[in-house]
């Protein structure tokens, strides 16, 4: 077999998978987005830009998503980084594996059930009751953007922890000694060596979380009490409630484009920031 043939064979499974599971559905969505809604819902073939012209009607959903997705990503990063740092640098190897498993364990349960648990924690009989007992009255947590943020951080934390952990774990610890040897204080060593060298992990984690957050609908629906509306929620409503497939497709296509643009700007920014040889990689 020729070299080219072997390469083709290696790529065939993934290629077919991508074609059937990604390209074709995307094509369907693309075509639908120029159609019209049937009288009883669904899709009627047509060629109209009406659905795209109607996009401003979902502007708030895009706005909410574009605010809360980066915010959630940053919040997850702020909490995940020290945790990953502890696990990779400070934690004794004896405990590391068990602690890593603890980070993954929540993934064994459905996000639906885990988010429901937060309803009780953030609900009136949970944290607010606890706060009341120490004299902080009338705190409403559930069904607020804050609750959604908590849910997001909780739900996506492992996705952020792992890439950062990996990049910190493979960081050559002698570099830290070298830095100390050259007169750098521990804090400056962190800023000048550890942090820049964990940029690939940070970039990967942020990208994973951000992309998934852009399509999130479950957490806002459950912890936002339906009052925090993401593009994902708009899509669920459009496809499952009002059955406006054409408009839903236009919104979905727009989301894809917004995501591509955001992610490519982000990649540019990161590669400039990091100046790394290793490009941003998915773990």
């Amino acid at each position: 077999m020729t070299e080219r043939g072997r390469k083709a064979l290696l790529l065939a499974p993934a290629g077919i998978w991508l074609l059937v599971m990604l390209a074709l559905p995307l094509l369907v969505v693309f075509v639908f987005s120029f159609g019209e809604r049937g009288a009883a819902g669904g899709y009627v073939p047509a060629f109209t830009l009406e659905q795209y012209a109607n996009l401003p009607a979902r502007w708030t959903a895009f706005k909410n998503t574009l605010i809360l997705a980066p915010l959630g990503t940053i919040a997850a990063l702020v909490i995940a980084y020290p945790l990953a740092y502890f696990l990779a640098v400070r934690c004794s190897p004896k405990w590391r594996t068990s602690l890593l498993i603890l980070v993954i364990v929540p993934f064994w349960t459905s996000i639906l059930i885990r988010s429901y648990a937060w309803i009780f924690i953030l609900g009136g009989r949970g944290l607010p009751a606890l706060l009341e007992s120490i004299g902080i009255d009338d705190i409403r947590l559930i069904n607020t953007p804050f609750a959604v943020l908590v849910g997001i951080v909780y739900g996506y934390l492992p996705l952020m922890v792992f890439p950062i952990f990996v990049s910190l774990d493979k960081l050559d610890k002698r570099l830290l000694e070298a830095s100390a040897d050259l007169g750098s204080t521990p804090w400056r060593t962190f800023r000048q060596v550890t942090l820049p060298l964990s940029v690939p992990g940070i970039a990967t984690g942020c990208m994973l979380v951000f992309i998934l957050l852009m399509g999130e609908f479950l957490i806002p629906a459950i912890l936002g009490g339906g009052k925090v509306f993401f593009v994902g929620n708009a899509l669920v409503d459009l496809f499952l409630q009002s059955r406006n497939w054409a408009y839903g497709s236009a919104v979905a296509m727009t989301l894809v484009v917004v995501m591509l643009v955001t992610v490519s700007i982000y990649m540019k920014f990161i590669s400039r920031l990091g100046g790394q040889r290793e490009d941003v990689s998915l773990m």
């Binding site: 009883a40 708030t60 909410n64 929620n233 409503d237 009002s242």
Partner: peptide, 16 residues
Amino acid sequence: LTDPNRAELLARFKSA
């Protein structure tokens, strides 16, 4: 049930 205006109204209400 099938009125698109009512569906849009609810979407505006939820995203407001």
